[in-house]
Computed example of a mutant assay.
Amino acid sequence: MSSFHLTQGDTPVLVSMPHAGTHLTPQVEAGLSHRGLSLIDTDWHIPRLYDFLDAQGVGRLQAKYSRYVVDLNRSADDKPLYAGATTGLFPEVDFDGEPLYRAGHAPSKDARDWALDNVWRPYHLALSEELARLRRRFGYAVLFDAHSIRSQVARLFDGQLPDINLGTNDGGSCDATLSDRLESVCAAQSSYSWVVNGRFKGGFITRHYGTPNKDVHAVQLELSQVTYMEEPREGALVDASTTFPYREREAKQVQALLIALVEELLVWRPRREPETIG
């Protein structure tokens, strides 16, 4: 099967969802622990939360495979993105540091090579080609990398995460005027806490594809899952039978803010107006 689903839009904006997939390869599924089979670190319900994109004419690239098969938001050489605790290209522990695999059952090198060639590379080829298409058509492209995470993960950050975590690689992945507009949207509301370039500054996708000098601007949003779903409490026991329910009322409330953020991406224009290519 294809490793991703691409919906092309008719605006300069593309939304990437690299951690929304839940499909597993047979070897990964066979080796995962009971806890690992819960896929607890998935960006749960992200495609549903962003179901307004079609009405806005915004394209999306959505992963089908779980990040436990291969993490699409890590570089192919597995270079660490953050100092301190993190997870890699082929995770063997979850965000809490718990082993994902039963002893001796981690994927083989051949299985990892397959995942790199058949999951990671096709996703990034599609991402780069779609951004190039948008840039040819509009003269520039805007990539919005959509993520979510539990609001409390002691191994990764202290206390409770802000609700909205925007990352621009410390200003390197997009024009400052774009970041300013997104900050203004966050500052204009009081329902959700927010930060820019806090614990999450943008992963490999944001850092690699966000090249403002080449008219591609990238922003990552790490959304606290407590804003829209029933997230597991820290230390809770989870296994393959665990579900992580979507909370319709809360989701609609935070969705209004997401819509406002994407609308800003749509109305924004680069300070240096690029030439479109027919």
Score class of each variant (00 low, 15 high):
Gly172Leu: 15
Trp194Asn: 07
Gly202Cys: 04
Ser179Thr: 13
His217Thr: 00
Asp113Pro: 00
Arg271Pro: 01
Ala260Glu: 05
Val15Gly: 07
Pro47Ala: 06
Leu37Ser: 15
Pro91His: 07
Phe90His: 12
Leu100Met: 07
Arg155Gln: 05
Val58Glu: 09
Ser75His: 05
Arg67Asn: 02
Gly167Arg: 06
Arg155Trp: 00
Ser224Met: 03
Leu89Asp: 01
Gln62Pro: 01
Ser148Ile: 03
Ser3Trp: 07
Glu222Asn: 05
Phe90Gly: 01
Asp239Ala: 06
Met1Phe: 01
Ala103Pro: 09
Arg271Ser: 11
Glu273His: 12
Lys109Ala: 08
Leu258Met: 14
Val70Ser: 03
Leu258Glu: 12
Phe95Tyr: 11
Ile277Ser: 11
Ser151Glu: 06
Val195Tyr: 08
His147Ser: 13
Val153Gln: 10
His5Thr: 12
Ser190Gln: 15
Ile46Gln: 10
Asp175Ala: 15
Ile277Met: 10
Arg233Phe: 01
Leu127Thr: 06
Ala106Met: 04
Arg150Ile: 10
Asp71Phe: 09
Val254Pro: 03
Ala20Arg: 03
Pro26Gln: 11
His217Met: 10
Tyr82Gly: 06
Val28Pro: 01
Asp110Trp: 14
Asn197Phe: 13
Asp113Glu: 14
Phe244Thr: 06
Pro80Ser: 04
Thr11Val: 00
Leu143Pro: 01
